[in-house]
Design a protein around this nucleic acid. Structure first.
Lengths: 202, 202
DNA sequence: CGTACTTTTGAATCGCATCAAATCTGGTGG
DNA sequence: CCACCAGATTTGATGCGATTCAAAAGTACG
């Protein structure tokens, strides 16, 4: 049994929970959990990609979250039912943890503190994302993305430009066009798997 | 000392923390806390309105959150520094709690569980908000808003249409126009301080 | 009664979505 | 090794919907 557990988890979880970790392989297209179902396991994505989606009353599906690493649905730890579906968009590996033991572990104040920290961080990330989505033009969105998600003005691509486009809420065509425009203006530089924002003085 | 404490807080907080609650009046325009400063107090808005804003590198200010009741910055409980400013947009009352005692209270597993629940709820709300902001046309955004934030297809206005417009990331002019269009189509009904979504079969 | 703000309508413009299609890419199997 | 396929990337043309700027009408408040 070659169970690889990321450092992050070893750091975060109490021994009792760590002992319950299991590896699970998932295929592209596989559904990890269903909306309305009772959460049994918490998923920690190690590789591959999964998304959270919800189908509205009118039958349209929208993506709530794209996850390429980390916990898939932190907010469901105490829920009686999932509020969305989880579907793998790229095959990969996940670590599963029984919800029950995670909940029990919350009585461990060392762990609960870390979990609060985890959730808080996600809230801040989501607020920033909402801020970005409120911006009117793609230029601003892209620059905002690089400034907030990148380091020193350099953003490393998590996947491809297509999913990046949907993350900032625009079509991929429009994103491509904006990128070439910004490049011509000398504001942006496309590197392999990276986007660099060049300093425009002031 | 007529310190009014909302039921929600009495329910949530341990006695030790409740004892430390103080009422604070704030005026429109007042700044409740500053970006970069160390959090000293947690604010619970009772009346009035406050917003979280952040000024980007380029000097533009954007609204991260509009708060008309409840905790103003739950995510900052464990932060060393605020990541945004809080400014009152309407005069009102707040309850302040010393951050320190709140943090200490997290060792109380009954409280930390509730706090985790609080944060989780906010995460789900934010995800739904992001989902809404990703919608392309105002029609969909408005309908999505009523469906997710309202009850039985009826949304009670939290403030005015202008701030509602900025919440869904559109100009108020466009929102007004969309509302009248939807009303003409018989999809929407404007009630005093309410918006009702009429059932379009299927 | 005046001031400030929201609500509402109008007109012009522009950016983005949309649809289409070509090119490029990596991966698969013959 | 090449043919092939699915998907990403890129460019083009068109139309719609939202922004923008302007201004009028309504409303709340001191």
């Amino acid at each position: 049994m070659d169970l690889y557990i990321p450092e992050l988890l070893k750091e975060l979880l109490p021994k009792e929970v760590l002992a319950q970790c299991r590896a699970q392989h998932f295929e592209k297209g596989e559904q990890l959990f269903h909306q309305g179902k009772k959460p049994e396991y918490m998923f920690f994505i190690v590789s591959g990609e999964a998304i959270l989606t919800r189908t509205s009353n009118h039958g349209e599906a929208t993506t709530l979250q794209r996850c390429k690493g980390g916990f898939l649905s932190e907010a469901s730890l105490l829920s009686d039912a999932y509020h969305c579906d989880a579907i793998a968009t790229q095959s990969g590996q996940a670590i599963t943890l029984p919800i029950k033991s995670l909940r029990d572990a919350l009585t461990d104040s060392k762990f609960s503190l870390k979990w609060v920290q985890l959730l808080s961080k996600e809230i801040m990330r989501l607020r920033t994302q909402s801020e970005r989505l409120s911006l009117k033009d793609i230029r601003s969105k892209l620059i905002h993305l690089i400034e907030t998600e990148g380091k020193q003005g350099v953003l490393t691509l998590q996947s491809d430009y297509k999913s990046m486009a949907s993350e900032i809420g625009v079509t991929h065509e429009a994103l491509y066009r904006t990128m070439t425009t910004l490049e011509k203006e000398g504001v942006l530089k496309k590197l392999p798997n990276c986007l660099e924002l060049l300093q425009t003085k002031k």
